[in-house]
């Protein structure tokens, strides 16, 4: 009898121990200095690509504490601390700092009082959380570029470099993304009406990273399009069209974040596209399918 009691007690203790272990601590990933340096390198490369006048880039961990910082030559000195503040604010709230700038601009002035409790609270656009497998592991903050908007754009590129490491399978034991397979029936159905093949619905995780795939179909002319972020890589499959690239869009309107449209373009270069042609339209370049010989089908890879 005693033996049984002791055993049962032992089991209960073992169960309690395992339960309390499960509830008391959890596993998490911490950003390394190497990871932080990669984020900074990607941000610096982008700053140089867009000819930013300067920038300070700060990377903090999930507690908002600085891991690494670089201030590019000629960048004003105060930007270093502002970059740290943006990164810290973004990490501690797990949000882009633009959220706070917008809230305060929108009239919620009392939000500035958060600064007294949170050391270096910086509600200025340019801080972006760094995510790993859906969890915020830190943040990157940029200050000192041409504008707050550009600060943020550079930070986004930096933040995405962490995702790219994951996507490339350089994950030190983490699982790479699953392979995407789309059968010919779905592909041809998509071309029949024109559809997003990859980048929406169950495939949204791809769009959250750096590319989308469209099965595009046109029966008539389009409007002038400018994608601020996406580069379009076009492969023509069926029909033909006159494509105008470049020029100055007239009557331009923003239809979605980083997406501009216009009814016409002044100037630009005209090309006739036929099956087999490939066109690469870099982000920011206006383009317009002005005349279309239907049905015009083309495969598009959108890269960010």
């Amino acid at each position: 009898m005693k033996h049984i009691t002791a055993t049962v007690t032992g089991i209960v203790i073992a169960m309690l121990t395992s339960i309390s272990y499960a509830e008391s601590v959890s596993d998490k990933h911490g950003l390394t200095l190497e990871g932080a340096k990669k984020v900074i390198a990607a941000t610096v490369a982008e700053a140089k690509r867009v000819n930013a006048p300067g920038s300070s880039i700060a990377v903090v961990d999930d507690g908002g504490n600085l891991l690494a910082l670089e201030r590019l030559d000629q960048t004003f000195a105060a930007s270093a601390n502002i970059a740290i503040g943006k990164a810290r604010t973004s990490a501690l709230f797990k949000k882009p700092t633009k959220v706070f700038e917008d809230a305060i601009k929108g009239g919620r002035t009392s939000m500035v009082t958060l600064g007294s409790d949170l050391q270096n609270f910086t509600p200025l656009q340019g801080g972006i959380p760094l995510e790993w497998e859906g969890k915020v592991v830190g943040a990157v903050g940029v200050s000192g570029a041409a504008s707050a908007q550009q600060d943020e754009e550079l930070a986004i590129v930096g933040a995405k470099s962490l995702d790219n490491m994951e996507m490339a399978g350089m994950t030190n034991g983490h699982t790479p993304l699953p392979v995407t397979y789309i059968d010919r029936q779905k592909v041809s159905d998509s071309f029949a009406k024109g559809a997003v093949l990859v980048g929406e619905d169950e495939n949204m995780m791809h769009a959250a990273r750096n590319y989308m795939v469209h099965a595009s179909h046109r029966d008539k002319a389009g409007v002038v399009e400018v994608h601020e972020l996406d580069t379009d890589i076009v492969y023509v499959l069926k029909g033909s069209a006159q494509l105008i690239t470049g020029g100055t869009p007239v009557g331009i309107k923003i239809v979605a974040p980083h997406e501009l449209r216009a009814p016409v373009v002044a100037g630009g270069e005209a090309r006739t596209l036929v099956p087999g042609d490939v066109v690469i339209i870099p982000n920011g370049v206006p383009h317009w399918f002005k005349e279309v010989e239907a049905p015009f089908d083309y495969y598009v890879v959108k890269v960010r």
Binding site: T32, L33, K37, D61, G63, N65, L66, L67, A68, L69, E70, R71, A77, A78, A80, N81
Partner: peptide
């Protein structure tokens, strides 16, 4: 830099914050 403003920082892994 000469004025005491931060140019570069590295926190090696597992260093106290």
């Amino acid at each position: 830099d000469e004025g005491g403003s931060l140019l570069l920082l590295e926190r090696l892994d597992d260093t106290q914050v």
